[in-house]
């Protein structure tokens, strides 16, 4: 446990510089975009209502008031989120491969630590989950900030005081990252965790068997995905004869996901202990 924590701390430190750079890019682009949309809205309002051509009521009859949802669907808001998602997905691979690829091969040291090699696995896994959760958390804090900024700049008549919860729930993108209910939160992040574990196992297949390993890894990932979606497919095909209630389905799929996680962890442990090569 102590060694796991030390390794986790080490992984976090190693990625922190790049991670903060990524956060800086994401949120500065979002901030700039928020200001851009606020000022263009204000300019638009000013133009339309110039010289009393329109009263605010008339304007609002034709146009939407300005609120959080006005920034959610803009490119300047979504592209940074996409950068974050892609960045963290790449990190899932990078977190393993950099130990082999660097000029100074750190993997020698990692594999020679007098501790269970699974600690390395768990440390890398936890690091990724922590970075994901932190990113989402910071995004939420920034949402509060954006709301404040909107309140500062947009006069109350033109403002749509949508709460953050409502704004998030009504946006399909944000809803995925920040589920409204605790249960859907666990489903989303549970699936994410399982996916990362499966990808880690695939990476270890490649690291153990090189070229053939890529094939093994891909097959493993595809197999896991098929297994996971099997109940849904069966349900779809045999709708007449076999019908599961929603909670039965939920239990079945949870069991499958847990099964996939357990098998992946055991496979990874075997590969790390007996097959992996520097």
């Amino acid at each position: 446990m102590k060694n796991y924590l030390k390794l986790l701390n080490f992984e976090i430190n190693r990625f922190s510089k790049l991670y903060f750079l990524m956060l800086a890019i994401i949120f500065s682009v979002q901030l700039i975009s928020v200001f851009y949309h606020i000022f263009s809205y204000l300019a638009f309002v000013k133009m339309e209502t110039k010289g009393g051509r329109m009263t605010p009521e008339q304007f609002l009859a034709e146009h939407f008031p300005f609120g959080l949802s006005n920034v959610f669907y803009t490119r300047g808001f979504l592209i940074p989120i996409l950068i974050g998602v892609v960045g963290l997905i790449l990190y899932v691979f990078f977190i393993w491969y950099r130990d082999w690829m660097a000029r100074n091969t750190f993997i020698y040291r990692l594999l020679m630590l007098p501790t269970s090699r699974m600690n390395i696995f768990y440390a890398k896994l936890s690091a990724i989950m922590l970075f994901v959760l932190t990113t989402v958390g910071i995004q939420l804090i920034f949402l509060v900030l954006y709301k404040k900024i909107i309140e500062w700049f947009i006069p109350v008549v033109y403002r749509d005081d949508l709460s953050i919860t409502m704004a998030v729930v009504t946006s399909p993108y944000l809803n995925t990252i920040v589920p409204a209910h605790l249960s859907s939160f666990f489903v989303a992040y549970g699936l994410g965790l399982a996916a990362v574990i499966v990808v880690f196992t695939a990476i270890l297949f490649e690291r153990s068997f090189q070229l053939v390993g890529i094939l093994y890894g891909l097959l493993y990932a595809v197999f896991s995905f098929v297994l996971f979606s099997l109940p849904l497919v069966v349900q779809l095909l045999m709708f007449e004869t076999l019908y599961l209630y929603a909670d039965e389905m939920f239990i079945l799929m949870t069991a499958i996901v847990i099964g996939i996680i357990v098998v992946s962890l055991l496979t990874s442990r075997y590969l790390l202990n007996h097959k992996v090569s520097v």
């Binding site: 190693r14 100074n104 007098p114 090699r117």
Partner: peptide, 19 residues
């Protein structure tokens, strides 16, 4: 075993620490 790494030290031809 993992304890072996306390008792056998390996010095590969490239450095095993981060640059």
């Amino acid at each position: 075993t993992k304890e072996t790494y306390e008792k056998v030290a390996y010095i590969p031809d490239s450095i095993t620490m981060l640059p």
